[in-house]
Amino acid sequence: MINVESLSHSYDRARTVLDAVAFEVRAGSVTGLVGPNGAGKTTLMRAIATLLRPRGGRVTVDGHDAVREPERVRRALGFLPERATPYLELTCAEHLEFFARAAGVTAAERAARISRALEQAGLRDRRDAPVKHLSKGLRQRLALQATLIHGPRALVLDEPTDGLDPESRGEVLASIRELARNGRAVLISSHVLSEIEAVADDVVILIDGKRQDAAPQAKGAPEFRIRLRDRADEAERMVSTLPAVAAVVRKNDALLVTLAIGVADPGDVAAAIVRAGFVLTTLEPVETTLANTYRDVVARSRNRGNGGLPS
């Protein structure tokens, strides 16, 4: 549904904001987009939403090219930017009505859609209340419903839970899951990794404009923490050459080892370490969470010299 192919962008020649990013968001699924501040997440989302023209690559939404057919893309897509605010001087119903009219929804259909949107935002009783009198959480729900009023098949949501209380966050995330269940393709960014983990089927990690390969961890490949008595840096180099190892990251005297796909037992790795003359003190499994994966990807990226600091 949303296809991003080799997307590149830079605001000036000195710094590349997006570097050949590629991924797909399928209909009926939620893809999480995570990365440190300045990683290029917002630029990527704006390119999908036709708000900027990328320097290279291609974005299609529901088969329409974002550069050549921007109006068709905007019909197929709902975009909720970061810190989006509804029109404060309008009432809840007027705000939804404006976006429905803007999308060309017929008068006959408009009333039904507005009522349904108010119902889903929990604002049925506040139809004629000015938006400026709503809480931040209700404004965010209203903004989300305005994004959906023209019935888009794909959604791009930039930090939709930013600044909300835990209850409102839960409600917004539940509605996002519901939208995917109804067949929509959803791309969502958030700095709260547990939210992405709770709602997303796939995750794209972006660091310094590049998509980072987090495949082994994200797909549940086993991960182990190995502690050594000394010479951890030498052991890291040795372990990284083993065919059973997909990735290794050193943290002080410990190595975080991700096994290659199809390898379930770390015994061969432990034996190779001992054979090489290192003193292994601990070997323990690590529970794979998005937070762990993200941390390791950022650490690997920083070791390669192109990493940003996680926020």
Binding site: E71, P81, A84, P86
Partner: peptide, 14 residues
């Protein structure tokens, strides 16, 4: 300034 511009630009209105 009020944060309403991007939702308007990304809506289907020409």
């Amino acid at each position: 300034e009020r944060g309403t511009w991007l939702p308007l630009l990304s809506s289907p209105v020409a």
